[in-house]
Design a protein around this nucleic acid. Structure first.
Lengths: 178, 178
DNA sequence: TCGCGCATGTAAGTTGTTACATGATTTA
DNA sequence: TAAATCATGTAACAACTTACATGCGCGA
């Protein structure tokens, strides 16, 4: 039920098309909210029906029309109310951790390989977040409060990736001799 | 689609009733896999139909019957195959991070309060995980490999809570003067 | 010329949540 | 005596995933 608020917040930050939002959710907001383009288009449609969003169609040469969404007054109101309410922590569901409980059935070689590919993606994510930091938040200490808070969302992504990598090192230690 | 494998792995570790599994998922496995009792009972029924699990009913005085599930040979086979395959990283969806993107609409007082309650739960979780460590994994270095790997799942929960708390401190720093 | 990026969607199926339902025993 | 714990489930709904669908322009 929070997807709609993630969309409202993203569009409030910057008006955008469904396609652009899909990309933002996949990249800069990857550690904030995950959503597929199907989910996004559907929810954008509903939000427009409910007058939370308004859209403007822009024709393009040789490409499909772009439908740019902006947040309405009603959308701002609804988002503001949601922001004031406290929310549940998101549940954790991690297949990799499930595997660690399988005991004698676990294939150590397969685990090592999976861990190696996780490590690579974590490193790539970390590198990407550092690049975003350099682009958007080069001087976070000087910036106004809401920039610094946005940076804290990115910061959490960086901390999480660093933690993942440190944890992977610990597992390598355990697996070392095997 | 991994709930069934989380259940198979948990039951392979130790045969149990739906009720006991619900509790394990809420406590010791909180950082591994989240599932409500409704989901668990439904999936246990399906897994038994598919002969992945077998159950034995045990009558109790003054309480409903207990239905103890154990994993079957077919269940072991299916779990083993799943363990060998690599899996996607779980998607991130965090309403608290969404809020940090709302800019001028964010109510700083409300954010402070929410953060304080998050901090408290993170600390409680961390304390709980440390207690589990003391009970189950007091000598992780000496134990056999699969105990040490189970400990690494718990360890990730501890690292995550420590990271959350450190991150909360950073936000307090940003919010300090406001 | 084959696939990728741009740009939008629909339909069907699976997974997860919320609400409802029962009933005895223990604890405050 | 009211609430929490033990112990099991069903039903309806919301959220999310996977597959399908279209079509132009650009680079290898």
């Amino acid at each position: 039920m929070s997807l709609r608020f993630a969309l409202l917040a993203a569009i409030h930050e910057q008006s955008a098309t469904g396609y652009e939002l899909t990309q933002r959710f996949r990249t800069r907001l990857a550690n904030v909210w995950n959503a597929s383009h199907q989910q996004i288009y559907r929810e954008l449609g509903k939000l427009q029906e409910e007058s939370m969003l308004a859209s403007e169609e822009v024709a393009q040469a040789g490409k499909p029309d772009r439908k740019i969404y902006r947040i309405t007054e009603k959308g701002v109101q609804t988002l503001s109310e949601w922001l004031r309410k406290p929310h549940e922590r998101p549940p954790t569901r991690d297949p990799l951790l499930v595997k660690l409980f399988a005991g004698d059935l676990l294939d150590i070689e397969a685990l090592k390989q999976e861990l190696a590919s996780c490590r690579q993606r974590w490193q790539e994510q970390l590198d990407y977040y550092r690049q975003v930091k350099a682009e958007y938040f080069s001087e976070p200490d000087q910036a106004p409060l809401h920039y610094r808070l946005q940076y804290m969302a990115l910061r959490k992504g960086m901390l999480a990736m660093e933690m993942n990598l440190a944890w992977a090192d610990e597992i390598d230690g355990v697996l070392g001799s095997h």
